[in-house]
Design a protein around this nucleic acid. Sequence first.
RNA 1: GUCCCCGUCGUCCAGAGGCCUAGGACGUGGCCCUUUCAAGGCUAAAACACGGGUUCGAAUCCCGUCGGGGACGCCA
Length: 440
Amino acid sequence: MPRLRFAPSPTGYLHVGGARTALFNWLYARRHGGVFVLRIEDTDVERSQAEMVTGILDGLRWLGIDWDEGPEIGGPHAPYYQSQRLDRYRAAARQLLDSGQAFEDGGAIRFKVPPGKTSFADSVHGPIEFDNEHIESFVILRSDTHPTYHLSVVVDDIDMAITHVVRGDDHISNTPKQVLLYQAFGKTPPAFAHVPLIMGADKQRLSKRHGATSVMEYETLGYLPEAMVNFLALLGWGTGSNDELLTKDELIQRFDLDGISGGNAVFNTEKLDWFNHQYLLKLTDNELTSRLQAQRPGAWDLGKDAAWSARVLALLRPRCKRLTDYRDQLAPFFVDPASYDADGVKKHLSAPGMAAHLAALKDAYATVAPFDEASTEQALRALADARGLKAAALIHGTRLAMTGRMVSPGIFEMLVLLGRDRVLSRLDALATHLANDPTS
RNA sequence: GUCCCCGUCGUCCAGAGGCCUAGGACGUGGCCCUUUCAAGGCUAAAACACGGGUUCGAAUCCCGUCGGGGACGCCA
């Protein structure tokens, strides 16, 4: 049975690269009915922080990546924190020292790299070989008796019976050292798969200056975890077919280490946005509403009138790619404009007589019946005609009156959803505003 | 500097010697729709880094060059 692990170091949050690595491991384990282990590599006391563990766990949970063994749930190979396994590493170092495969150097213990070549099969890159002369006699146990990364991963992967190591490309040059350790312990190394790194738009390694790199920041930005998972899965991996919109189950069914490509992948935010929009579209009104509430509790109350809410959402769905877009575009449906877009006022309301035109429209709308899309449109066009205006001029003015903005869903649909009372008061408010201070 | 990995449209992924006049998606351009912005429909442009081989035949195999990335810590 395949056993895979994700072994983050709690020196930072869960970034998108780590998230994808975790996802690949998880996908493979789920695909093959294996076990997915989560292990915390906190042997660097100086840099590890307990809060970071929580952050990483939250990130995984948000993405829906669950672990079979690890923090909070334990398992047959507990503990899953390296800081709690120190005795194991010390014993392992002792063992290598006793067998003459390691030596002391100024209080630390170094591995004695034998001459020859070290090679391993990589599921992504094929066979890779290093000449041992390029491998220094690396430290395995520091003078403070804490293990270094190389020793602890190997000891733990052996202890935890890990069969597949799927990790970032940047570990390729570490691998021969670890293979050497497996050999020193008389063990067979696991299968390795080194996945290419994720780069920013400038092809440089993803870092803070590229914007959001923590997966949880993407939640804040209004992305759906299922969109993130789909997008991340396809960064550096292809299904072999042209399908791209894949559910988690479909990803599991199709995932394969062979399909991982060898070159670095650029994180393309436009495509993430597209995925997110697609997943947002799949949500039912109820689901969407609860996601919005979860994102910002109490923001707008969409629960009051289901039929009305459904119509509002239908108007916004094609226009919102992220949950945060809803937060923004929902506003006009709940609150009167606090101000009017300055460019909009200048462009659409500066013509003389606009206040009077809007007042006239208000009068027309006070009596138009029924107050539906067809009638409100007909009334507006008739009024524009009568006053020698282009309908568009009145429409833009009305949009400003209703939303304060230059951009909104179709105005007649909005009028109906706002209801006659609010339409009249908002028209009145803008007309008054213009009459008092036409330049602002 | 040394070692390692990688090199197909702007980006992600197909392509594992003939099916390729290189396919899909995102993005981009144009047209349609239209009260703005989106969405939608139609449509277009866009790539095998370069040079040598091998072969009847190469995007696919080999070598070199160039380019990009990574690693060289008592960090992980």
